[in-house]
Write a protein that binds this DNA or RNA. Structure first.
Lengths: 187, 187
DNA sequence: GACATCTATATCGATTTAATAGAGATTAAA
DNA sequence: TTTAATCTCTATTAAATCGATATAGATGTC
């Protein structure tokens, strides 16, 4: 029942980009995402393209380009991302809601395995289609803030500062910006 | 999140053998299982060997040989069979109870993906480790009987009769046997 | 001894996975 | 206008896995 690395990498990148958005960071370079998550850069490149083509992300080309989330985060369900990259959630095709396929068993109606796997499919889908990216990102950020752990992509990030990557517009310490509720950087 | 065909075939064969046991059929030939479930015979052969080595099945060699269930059916959990054939139930190794492995993310504690996938793992395990083979076999048989559908491996099975396969001991029509509650063949 | 059946191992082709490579397009900035 | 940084696109590849097939052998029944 394991997810592919491709899928895991994609989800981790999405969460990172979600955190970045919450922290008012504009775009994030592939390289930065790859290094932060220990993902081979060229591999991540392909995955981000796929997420972009599916509408979840958008990109800015050229110098100081990068990726950002496009679809509102409360619309992005984990289930949809997994379906995109790894295919149906169902353990067997004959219980899939989105990609049903008849199996080779003699009679689906009396197939004991199907009964069990239908439960499993529903359990998986109930979770993955319930969680939105927003929920998970908010939860992760809150946990870090509660524990006084530095949240990635926070403004004033020393690493980014050293790299000279501009924030929302210019230096946001002197010129603070807020697009949404702008989670405050505690600790 | 799909199971391998190997795993599905193995589970279907186990259920079949469970039904056979309930119907007081002694051993079942690989060929019969393979034909009944539309599984390539030589492939099923390997799978049954694996289930035998794991202790779930036992075999009788030679003419009139075949396979039967060894472990009591209420002890065989679907989760254990899936783990045997397809590996851990968890979508990602860092939430596996039986095969934990550290992942490449920067910090497990604040990994949003891990939080979600831990829920998924638990949901899957709660179902697959809850269902025993006995439960599922009983349920499937009951459903067939309620609908007056012929249960496979029932004594007096015309096909088996034609094949000349002996039942528990001799002809069980004249010499009926019952080992457990012996589900009655309705219709 | 003939035959039916499981046992064991090896092989094979196709597919998928995880990655790598490299040339090109676009943009910002010097 | 050049340069450097970045995304874009396609191709390639190495390894693993999957699903299946083949074949020779062991074992038991009749």
């Amino acid at each position: 029942m394991a997810l592919s690395k491709r899928c895991v990498y994609g989800l981790r990148a999405l969460i990172d980009l979600g955190v970045a958005q919450r922290m008012d960071r504009d775009v994030v370079r592939i390289q930065e995402l790859a290094e932060g998550e220990n993902i081979p850069e060229k591999f991540l490149e392909q995955i981000l393209m796929q997420l972009k083509h599916a509408g979840f992300l958008e990109s800015v080309r050229g110098k100081y380009g990068g990726y950002r989330i496009r679809t509102p985060m409360d619309i992005i369900r984990f289930g949809d991302v997994v379906r995109l990259i790894d295919g149906p959630l169902a353990p067997i095709a004959c219980v899939s809601q989105t990609a049903y396929e008849k199996c080779s068993c003699p009679d689906e109606v009396y197939c004991g395995l199907r009964m069990v796997m239908l439960d499993v499919r529903n359990a998986i889908a109930n979770i993955l289609d319930q969680y939105s990216l927003k929920q998970v990102v908010d939860l992760a950020i809150k946990k870090m803030q509660d524990d006084s752990v530095r949240v990635p992509f926070t403004e004033g990030n020393w690493f980014e500062a050293l790299q000279g990557v501009p924030l929302k517009k210019t230096l946001s310490k002197e010129n603070p910006q807020r697009r949404k509720k702008s989670a405050s950087t505690k600790a």
